[in-house]
Design a protein around this nucleic acid. Structure first.
Lengths: 128, 128
DNA sequence: CAGCATCCCCCAAGATACTG
DNA sequence: CAGTATCTTGGGGGATGCTG
């Protein structure tokens, strides 16, 4: 992920690499944020409407949820289905890439559970 | 991770759960950010000085790096070693919990590589 | 109900400079 | 070299109101 130089490649290949690298970085910047993670975790393998999602994520503003959903949709991680009824109904679900990322988020959740007591005591030690 | 109610527990157990839950959330808020991830990935299983780290992460300001390192140290994910020489020398390395999280970040990097072309085309489709 | 636009405020984060 | 403090600004993010 870092901007390391790989030798034995043509200039074009180097360029491709650094382009892929900067794209990877962009993706990181988009996706590696707490709301995205919480949304992905909340969606799981289910289907939720905007308001359900908002409620289940908890503590997220209308605007932030919209922004993050757009971002996730743009990156092809969530699929948005609009039912042209009145009142409107919009459903969100994870795509296959989204499910892939969900696996990562799951491991992070597992990690949190595993180390939560360590972290808590580390914090107490640090805060004194 | 969500704030789901679990029945069959005493009030105290419920309280413990929600306390653990809010702590987990705090940890998420701290750690699920792009700089933290990039720092963890950059550190890997090595040992780096402040300035080396800054250079290798790339694009991070002095201040942001300091803040994130303090945060990671507070949560017990990185260990900070100060050599009382002049000029000072400070080394950072991941702790065991930090290595655990690094595994997660690694899977995210793998995920990025796997889906980078899908994401790129999803973006192009979306942006038109 | 979901989304967008507008307004507005405050804090995140950069720049700079000083200490040990 | 690493860290802290101060100052300043842009934009993140909340609140509100309007539309389909």
């Amino acid at each position: 992920m870092g901007t390391k130089q790989v030798s034995g490649l043509s200039a074009a290949e180097q360029a491709d690499l650094s382009r892929a690298d900067s794209l990877a970085r962009e993706i990181f910047s988009d996706v590696a944020n707490k709301w995205a993670f919480l949304i992905i975790e909340t969606l799981g393998d289910g289907v939720l409407r905007f308001s359900e999602l908002r409620q289940q994520v908890g503590g997220i503003s209308h605007k932030m949820l919209t922004q993050n959903l757009r971002m996730l949709e743009r990156n092809g991680l969530v699929e948005r289905t609009v039912y042209p009824t009145v009142p409107p109904k919009v459903e969100y679900r994870l795509t296959e890439p989204g499910q892939g990322l969900r696996a990562t988020v799951d491991t992070m959740c597992a990690w949190t559970h595993k180390y939560i007591t360590d972290i808590e005591s580390a914090r107490q030690a640090f805060d004194s």
